[in-house]
Computed example of a mutant assay.
Amino acid sequence: MTRHVTFMTIDDAEHYSPGQRAAIVAAYPAHEREARAKGIPVLGSGRIFPVAEQLIACEPFRLPRYWPRLGALDFGWDHPSAAVELAWDTEADIVYVTKAARAAQQTPAMQVLTLKPWGEWLPFAWPRDGRRETLEGAGVALAKQYAAHGLNMLSRHAQFADGSVSVEAGLMEMLDRMQSGRFKVFSTLLPWFEEFRLYHRKDGQVVKLRDDLMAATRYGVMMLREAVVDPAEFRSARRPAGQADPLGAFR
């Protein structure tokens, strides 16, 4: 028997007007609103990011061309491979998730076809399992397979500046940014929010199920220092008057 789970929110109930939907949500007790309106399970302390969606969601906008950007990958096969693009407002130190892609059982060549239009110049962070050789790639490490197909892979796997790769440290960095208003996600990235709602722990351990975009985002946050400005945009850009430049991009 084949089963499929479809996630819907009250915003998908288009037979209600926006005003009616808002009134329905407001009528729920505050602690039940996410579960009833967004379909978010009540996971209690098990949720890894106990943050209301409205605190991190933002409407898409045209990115300032002087913002550094970075791609990030999580490898997979039966469970999906996933990729995100991060844009960094370095003046306010706010990270934006601006693109997301997820697909199962796709070779590196197929995934690169999806990701290269994001910008051939865009560097991609990747996890340390990208150093492993795979049967599908005839013994060639995954990261090298992506690079061979033209994706601009960083020279080393995702890690903090001190060389550590702690999952918990990465999650805490993301949570700290969310709670302090320094992490935003384009509201149109529905698959990203699906994973965000269900990302949780069991017996203290991160449940590695439907977490592909979450993992890719974590790798990107770890390697944010490698974000760069689009070279074509940089050449034509002029530093706005009064714009801070903490990365020294315009020096």
Rank of each mutant, 00 (worst) to 15 (best):
L190C: 10
R33V: 08
A35L: 07
R238D: 12
M214T: 00
I24E: 00
T188S: 03
V95F: 11
K116V: 13
L70Y: 11
L213V: 04
P123S: 00
Q111F: 14
A216E: 00
Y199F: 14
V95D: 02
A30S: 14
A161I: 11
D93F: 13
A244Y: 07
S164R: 07
E136R: 09
G242Y: 13
M174W: 14
V97A: 02
D245E: 01
E195Q: 08
H79M: 07
A141G: 10
A37G: 15
K116F: 14
L151D: 00
I94D: 01
D129M: 04
H157G: 12
R36A: 15
D12R: 05
V95A: 12
Y96C: 08
A27T: 01
E226K: 15
A169R: 10
R239H: 09
A232Y: 11
V112Y: 13
R210C: 12
A37C: 12
L213K: 06
R102Y: 12
V25E: 01
A83M: 05
A141R: 03
G248T: 03
A237G: 15
E85T: 12
S155G: 13
V25Y: 04
R36E: 10
R33S: 13
H149Y: 14
A141W: 03
S155E: 06
M222A: 03
H79Y: 15
I94R: 00
W88E: 03
S81T: 10
A83H: 07
Q243F: 13
T217G: 02
F124M: 02
A249C: 14
L43G: 05
P50V: 07
E85K: 06
A147H: 06
P117Y: 13
G119R: 05
R218A: 05
K184A: 11
A237P: 15
E59Q: 07
L224K: 02
A52K: 06
R33E: 11
T114P: 12
Q243R: 11
Q179S: 06
D11G: 07
D78K: 10
P108H: 04
G76W: 08
R47H: 13
F193M: 05
A57C: 05
I56R: 03
A104W: 14
R197D: 07
Y28H: 13
T188H: 03
R132C: 15
A169Y: 05
A138E: 13
R69L: 06
P127E: 01
A104S: 14
P41E: 01
G76K: 04
L142E: 02
T114S: 06
L175D: 00
A13H: 12
V84P: 14
M174E: 04
A100E: 07
A83K: 04
G39A: 07
T9N: 04
D93W: 08
D211N: 06
Q159R: 15
A244R: 02
A22G: 10
Y146Q: 02
A87L: 11
A158W: 08
K208A: 08
V185A: 05
P191F: 00
A216D: 02
A57N: 04
E136P: 02
K38N: 14
L63D: 02
R210V: 10
I10W: 08
A237S: 14
D11E: 09
G76N: 04
H149E: 03
I40S: 11
H31S: 13
P68M: 08
R128S: 15
M1K: 11
